[in-house]
Amino acid sequence: MIDADRSTPADRSMIARLAAHISHANDADPTARTAPARAAANEKFVKQAREMHPDASDERIAQVAEHLRKAHFIRLGRASGAARRAKAKTAKAPAA
């Protein structure tokens, strides 16, 4: 047994990754495992689309929701890139 109080953050990370791989290896249908989370995430965009266009058809709501989803992930990508650039900049900065 591993003593969680004495393990390092790197140890805990490795233990968690190991557990996740074992858990996923035991799944007969990995897509079904994550379906509820994907549906909940998509519903967030559908709800937002319905608020923006209350009189729109279901087809139009689906289109708007897809655009909102893509915009969301583009924003995440931009933020991630900015964070990586900032981290790289501070790593290259000379020590004072």
Rank of each mutant, 00 (worst) to 15 (best):
L68Y: 04
S13E: 13
D5L: 15
A95P: 09
K87T: 06
A62Y: 03
V46A: 04
A39R: 06
A79K: 12
A4H: 14
P36R: 08
A95I: 13
M52F: 04
D5W: 08
D58K: 04
S57T: 01
A82I: 06
G77Y: 01
A35N: 05
S80I: 01
E59I: 00
R78K: 13
V46M: 03
A82L: 09
H67A: 11
V64D: 00
L68G: 01
R38L: 10
N42V: 00
A35Y: 02
K44P: 02
A4D: 15
R69C: 02
A79C: 08
H72T: 01
A40E: 11
R69P: 02
A71D: 13
M14D: 13
R33K: 14
G77L: 02
D11H: 11
D55R: 07
E59T: 10
L76Y: 05
V64M: 04
K89G: 07
D29S: 10
A28N: 07
M52E: 14
P94T: 15
A56Y: 03
A86E: 07
A37G: 08
A83R: 15
P9Y: 03
P9D: 12
P36I: 07
R60M: 04
A88G: 05
E43K: 10
P54T: 03
R78E: 11
A86C: 04
H24M: 04
V64W: 02
D11V: 02
A91D: 06
M14L: 14
T8N: 05
S23G: 12
I61M: 05
K89H: 14
I2W: 03
A39W: 00
A88T: 01
D5T: 14
R12T: 11
A16L: 14
D55G: 07
V64Q: 02
R69N: 05
A91Q: 13
R50D: 00
F45L: 03
R75W: 05
L18K: 15
S80L: 04
R60A: 01
A86N: 09
H24I: 00
R78Q: 11
G77R: 06
N42D: 05
S57F: 01
M14N: 10
A79G: 08
T34S: 14
A37Q: 12
R12N: 11
V46F: 01
K70W: 05
A49E: 02
P9E: 10
A40D: 10
V64L: 00
I74R: 04
R85Q: 12
Q63E: 12
I15Q: 11
K89C: 08
P54W: 01
D29C: 03
R60I: 00
A25H: 02
T90G: 07
R60P: 00
